[in-house]
Computed example of a mutant assay.
Amino acid sequence: MNRSEFVFAPPPVPSVAVEGGSLRFPVRRIFCVGLNYADHAREMGKDPGAEPPFFFTKPADAVVESGATIPYPSMTGNLHHEIELVAALGSGGADIPVEEALGHVWGYAAGIDLTKRDLQKKARDEGKPWDFSKGFDQSAPIGALRPAARIGHPQSGRIALSVNGEPRQAGDLSDMILGVAEVIAEISKYVRLAPGDLIFTGTPAGVGPLRPGDRIEGEIAGVGAASLAIAS
């Protein structure tokens, strides 16, 4: 179809920078993993032995370029940061075996899952969906992707985040309850994964509030960094 066949011009394709050049990675969907680090599950009042990781989504256009300044979002007084390893898929499928899953990963990046914690808690307590606490505008800042062909598939390494230079989160990728391969295999049981899908794989302990004027910096050893600022 060309543009004349649409009621209005289609929006631009959301995309993420690729390290070392001008290429962009087009984003199809964003999947996220909740409670994938035991220490974070416990700080959220959950028992990681009884409540396994689970999945939710964000819209593709929630992505934000690293280094951007974004407004403090509406309808919240408790915005939280969550640093995460992001896997970007270059191919996909349904019912992907664990042993084949990493072959579908094109690259990795550091990402920050922004969360309206007050809305999330209220929705959870009332047994309602938390879409508006996770899938709001500009809720998925992400650094430049590094191809897996160059860096391999990180199984361990420091993952950390600071706010205004103050350390907030620190952990190791090896602490994930479900590794990247297991996450891909599990999600593919429910939906057919495809090129352009991003997976935010969960966050370590230390999540906390952000305020107008804050500067956030996250990093993952061997993968890269992501930063953003909250407008004053």
Rank of each mutant, 00 (worst) to 15 (best):
R211E: 13
A140W: 02
G107D: 03
V163E: 08
A41K: 00
M75C: 11
P154C: 13
G171Y: 01
G218E: 01
I142G: 00
G224I: 03
F8N: 13
V33K: 02
G152Y: 11
D47N: 15
M176H: 12
P12S: 14
G202P: 07
A205I: 03
V33C: 08
S4L: 15
I151Q: 07
P154D: 09
P141F: 05
P147Q: 04
V64I: 05
G45V: 10
I96G: 01
K134D: 02
D172C: 13
G67Y: 06
A144V: 10
E51H: 13
A231Q: 13
H104F: 12
W130C: 04
T201Q: 05
I159G: 05
G152K: 12
R211K: 15
K189D: 06
G45H: 08
P12Y: 10
P209D: 12
V191D: 07
Y72T: 00
P12G: 12
E84V: 06
I187N: 02
G103W: 09
G111S: 09
A226C: 15
A194S: 14
G49H: 09
F6A: 10
K121S: 11
S15M: 07
A68D: 14
Q169S: 10
N2G: 13
I187M: 03
I70E: 00
E51Y: 06
D47M: 11
Q155P: 08
A62K: 07
Y37A: 05
V27G: 00
G135D: 08
D131F: 15
M176P: 02
G107L: 04
E217H: 14
W130P: 04
V27I: 07
E82T: 01
P209R: 10
G107V: 04
P147F: 07
H81C: 08
V64Q: 01
I30P: 01
E166A: 14
A38S: 11
S232A: 15
L102S: 08
G222C: 09
R3I: 14
